[in-house]
Design a protein around this nucleic acid. Structure first.
Length: 355
DNA sequence: AATGCGGGGAA
DNA sequence: TTCCCAGCATT
């Protein structure tokens, strides 16, 4: 057997001295807190998620509390974190746990994976960290570490490559020296190595416990592995944003459609173009409208397109009958904005320009 | 197999 | 600027 077989014990020995032992979800490391952290950390860096995690568990300290909370409260706690389907799935999964599993997470890979928002890697992370089950994870860190360690070519997002990496991850987690009691540390160790040593750019190979057997290190190819995602040009879109204030200085928010970006979040009324704005104004207000005050455009980048928002502002708008609060429209005081899930750039616009 | 889905950190 | 991060669901 080559040294590749020693992956797990070497990693674990390194973790004891150099891993991260003070992350907020580690104290206490309950299934609920592990679950929440794993969901928040999907496509999200630790530094970004930490503050959200602290606020979330302070407001909703356990699974039954989450299940009992209104979805809008959960979205408000998620506001600014992005990928809001995670929050909706989290909430739905909590309710299903109350209905089907006595208010706890199931200790079972298939049952966990069947819950919304939990895939194979997240389920394995929960099982290994919360209960010490022998499960392999494969997140962005592990993909990078294994791609380099084994010299796996090809973009890890490609299903065929991902399948290879799963096989390698399963092999390492099966190492006989790896005791179940150390599974939480082993799982954490892989992510810590990827986050602190085997980083995307300029990895600290000289500090790596796996350096003597790492193919990328040995062949001087850490800059080429893992193979980057094929580049593509992002489409550019634009939209009109309407900032309406009534005589009391309240702002009009509209619930976004249940599908698409920012699904079901509250935001300023947003239209595709000038014609859309005209139509919205006539259907919601009726009277002829003024131009409003044009504000600086906002450039926002999504992972799949760029969006330029063109905000305009009106004050002293008299609510027409159809403009009263309903399921999709709400006049809100500025000090109430924190109670709703609002897209980050829209919240930023309002907070910075509201004087 | 490919695409949709946020926001921010880092080079 | 560009890349990608503790991914998953949908098509």
């Amino acid at each position: 057997m080559s040294g590749a077989d020693d992956f797990a014990p070497r990693l674990l020995a390194w973790f004891d001295g150099h891993g991260r032992h003070d992350l907020p979800w580690q104290h206490p490391r309950t299934p609920y807190r592990v679950w929440l952290s794993e969901i928040m950390l999907q496509q999200t860096q630790v530094k970004t998620a930490t503050g959200y995690f602290e606020r979330f568990v302070a407001a909703l300290p356990d699974l039954p509390a989450l299940a009992a909370a209104p979805l809008d409260d959960v979205l408000a706690l998620w506001s600014g974190l992005g990928y809001y389907a995670r929050a909706r799935n989290l909430h739905a999964a909590a309710r299903r746990c109350v209905d089907d599993y006595g208010g706890e997470l199931p200790r079972d890979l298939d049952a966990l994976t069947a819950l919304p928002g939990i895939g194979r890697s997240t389920a394995a992370a929960i099982l290994s960290q919360a209960w010490g089950e022998r499960c392999a994870i494969l997140d962005g860190n592990v993909k990078r570490v294994l791609s380099r360690y084994h010299g796996v070519e090809g973009w890890p997002g490609k299903p065929a490559i991902e399948k290879q990496l799963w096989t390698l991850a399963e092999r390492h987690v099966a190492h006989p020296s790896l005791a179940p009691a150390r599974m939480p540390d082993y799982t954490q160790a892989q992510m810590d190595l990827g986050a602190t040593i085997c980083t995307r750019a300029k990895p600290a190979c000289v500090l790596c416990p796996l350096q003597s057997d790492c193919v990328a290190r040995i062949e001087g190819r850490t800059g080429e592995l893992p193979t980057p995602r094929p580049a593509k040009v992002l489409p550019q879109r634009s939209a009109q944003v309407l900032w309406l204030e009534d005589a009391q200085g309240r702002v009009l928010l509209q619930r976004r459609p249940p599908t698409g970006v920012w699904a079901s979040l509250w935001s300023l009324p947003q239209l595709d173009d000038a014609e859309g704005t005209d139509a919205w104004w006539s259907s919601h207000i009726g009277t002829a409208r003024s131009e409003g005050a044009a504000l600086d455009p906002i450039d926002h980048a999504f992972s799949h397109y760029r969006l330029q928002l063109h905000p305009r502002r009106w004050s002293g708008v008299e609510p027409a009958p159809r403009l009263r609060d309903n399921d999709a429209l709400r006049w809100l005081r500025y000090d109430e904005l924190a109670t709703l899930g609002i897209p980050a750039p829209v919240r930023r616009l309002i907070e910075t320009a509201r004087n």
